[in-house]
Design a binder for these strands. Structure first.
Length: 427
RNA sequence: GGAUAGAUGGCCGAGUGGUCGAAGGCGCACGAUUGGAAAUCGUGUGUACCUCUAAAGGGUACCGUGAGUUCGAAUCUCACUCUAUCCGCCA
C-alpha cells in the first residue's frame, strides 16, 4: 500500500514512477479525486458527530424541562449523522479498494521494460557442464533409479503432483536441512509455519486483490492454502508496535506451498518443474524503514541464495527483473536461475525481493524509532532459501553421470550420510 | 464437537451507562540527586484521521471484530473471531 499524502504531494513523480510498471496515470488522478471526496465527507460527518456529542453531554446538566427538546434535537442530528456515515462508508470502501490496487514504486536502478523479455542478466556463475554421453532429463533419471511414482500419484492426487522415493526423497529433505543450517548460521530464526491462512494475510502480503485465481480456497472453513511461508511470516507480527531494538527480524520459514497454476495450463507439464504442492524454505526479513538498510538486506539475501546454488554446485545466472515483470508489491527484484541441461536454458529457482514499506503498510507492521520517537512502517524482504522438488531438476540433470547415477556435492554429503553418489549403479 | 472463563494503551492491570483516551504499576524520555552509577524523587509519555496553522490550536474515531439498544456504551444485547481450562475425538 502507498501513502496517500505522499501521492497528493508528489503526484507527478508518482505517475512517472508507477508508469514504469505500466500503471496508468489516470488511475492516480482518480485515486486523488476519491481521496478529496472522502475527506469532504469526513469533515461533514465529523461536524455532525461533534454537534451530537455536545448535545449528549449537555443533557446531564440540563433541567428536566430542557431535556426533551435537547433529546429531540440530538435524535435528529443522530439521523443526519447516520445518513452521512453511510455515504462515507461507501466512499471509504471505494478508496480502500483503489489504494490496495496501487503497485509499489520500482527502484531507480531497476531496468525499465514491459515484460520478462527486458529482464537483465547481471552475471553468470559456474561452468555449464559438457557431457560426453547422451544426457537424460530428470524424469528419465528418476525412472531408471526407481525414485518416483509419477504416473501412479497422478491417479491418486491429479495432475501436477509428485511422489518421490528412496535416495531422492532423502535428498529432498537433505537439501532443506543444509539450507536451514546456512540460514541459522546467518542469524535467522528457524520457524516452521502452517500452510493454512485466513483471508486478511493474503491482502497484507499483496497477493489479493491481484491473483485470486492462483489460490486454493476452502469454502467450508473460509480458509486458504498458502502459496509461500512469506504469506504467514509477513502477518506473524501484524498490528504489533515493535521497538527499534527488535529489528531486524530474520526468519527461515519452512512450509508446504500450494499453487493452483491456473495461468500455466500446458506449461512445464512434465516432471517436477511446476507442481501444485511443494516444500519451500523461505528467507524473510523485517527491518528498519530505510532504503539503504533494506537494500543491504536485499543484497545479503541474494548472496545467501547464491551460496546455496554454489554449495549445490549448480551453474546459475542472476537476473535483475524489469519494472514490467515485477509483481505489484516489489521495489526491486532479482531472480536466480539454475542451468537445466535437458532444456538447454536457465530456469528459475529463487526470487529475491525488496518490498520496502508496501507490505508493512497493509500489515500494519510498525516500530518506534529511537531517535525521533516516531512510529514508522517496517521494510520487509523475502527470498527463496530453496524450493523442492523444482531444485531437484537442475540438481539431478547437472550432476548426472553416464550410468544414470548422480554425484553429490561435497557440501551436501554430510546431510546424506556421507554418500558421494546416489543411484542404481552406486549401490 | 460439548462446557466454562476471558480479550482494555509498548507491557501488566483497574474500570458494569455520562465526570473514561481510560486509575495504578512497569517500561521509556527528560530533570533533580551522585565523583559516576544504582536506588530515590519530580515531570512527561497512545494510535489513526479530519480541520486549521508559521507554530500552537480545534475536532472525530479507536477498550478483540461486526451489528444493535440509548440523547449518550469500554460498560447493556446479539453474532462472530481468537485465547485458556475441562470433556470427547485424534496424528
Amino acid at each position: 500500500m502507498l501513502d496517500i499524502k505522499f501521492i497528493v504531494e508528489n503526484t507527478d513523480w508518482v505517475k512517472q514512477s508507477l508508469g514504469r510498471k505500466g500503471f496508468p496515470a489516470e488511475k492516480v488522478d482518480e485515486l486523488i479525486n476519491t481521496y478529496l471526496e472522502l475527506n469532504k465527507f469526513k469533515t461533514s460527518s465529523q461536524t455532525l458527530a461533534e454537534e451530537k456529542n455536545r448535545l449528549s453531554n449537555s443533557i446531564k446538566s440540563a433541567s428536566a424541562e430542557e431535556r426533551p427538546a435537547i433529546i429531540a434535537k440530538s435524535k435528529e442530528i443522530g439521523e443526519q449523522f447516520k445518513a452521512e456515515q453511510e455515504k462515507l462508508t461507501k466512499i471509504q470502501a471505494k478508496f480502500d479498494d483503489m489504494i490496495l490496487r496501487m503497485p509499489n514504486y520500482p527502484s531507480e536502478e531497476s531496468p525499465d521494460g514491459p515484460d520478462d523479455s527486458a529482464n537483465v542478466v547481471r552475471r553468470k556463475v559456474g561452468e555449464i557442464p559438457h557431457f560426453d554421453f547422451p544426457i537424460r532429463d530428470h524424469v528419465e533419471l528418476m525412472e531408471i533409479n526407481d525414485w518416483s511414482e509419477m504416473e501412479r500419484i497422478a491417479k491418486v492426487s491429479g495432475a501436477r503432483t509428485y511422489a518421490i522415493k528412496n535416495d531422492l526423497a532423502q535428498l529432498e529433505l537433505a537439501i532443506h536441512m543444509m539450507v536451514m543450517d546456512k540460514l541459522r548460521a546467518n542469524g535467522f530464526t528457524l520457524i516452521t509455519v502452517p500452510a493454512i491462512s485466513k483471508e486478511k494475510p493474503l491482502y497484507n502480503q499483496g497477493y489479493l486483490p491481484f491473483a485470486r485465481d492462483e489460490i486454493y480456497y476452502m469454502p467450508a472453513d473460509d480458509l486458504y492454502l498458502s502459496g509461500t511461508a512469506e504469506l504467514i511470516l509477513n502477518s506473524l507480527r501484524a498490528d504489533e508496535l515493535l521497538t527499534e531494538a527488535d529489528l531486524p527480524i530474520l526468519y527461515a520459514g519452512f512450509s508446504p506451498c500450494f499453487r493452483r497454476e491456473a495461468g500455466a495450463a500446458g506449461k512445464d507439464t512434465r516432471g517436477l518443474v511446476r507442481v501444485h504442492q511443494f516444500f519451500k524454505t523461505e528467507q524473510f526479513v523485517i527491518c528498519k524503514n530505510d532504503v539503504a538498510e533494506s537494500d543491504k538486506w536485499h543484497k545479503k539475501l541474494l548472496q545467501i541464495s547464491e551460496e546455496v546454488l554454489q554449495d549445490l554446485e549448480l551453474p546459475y545466472q542472476v537476473l535483475e527483473v524489469c519494472t514490467g515483470d515485477m509483481g505489484a508489491p516489489k521495489y526491486r527484484q532479482y531472480d536466480l536461475e539454475a542451468w537445466v541441461p535437458s532444456q538447454n536454458c536457465y530456469r528459475e529457482t529463487h526470487s529475491c525481493s525488496n518490498i520496502t514499506d508496501w507490505q508493512a503498510r497493509r500489515t500494519n507492521l510498525r516500530y518506534r524509532e529511537n531517535a525521533s520517537g516516531k512510529v514508522k512502517f517496517c521494510h520487509t524482504l523475502n527470498n527463496t532459501g530453496i524450493a523442492t522438488p523444482r531444485a531437484l531438476v537442475p540438481f539431478m540433470e547437472n550432476h548426472q553421470q553416464a550410468d544414470g547415477t548422480i554425484k553429490i556435492p561435497a557440501k551436501l554429503q554430510p546431510y546424506l550420510g556421507g554418500k558421494k553418489v546416489i543411484g542404481k549403479g552406486a549401490e
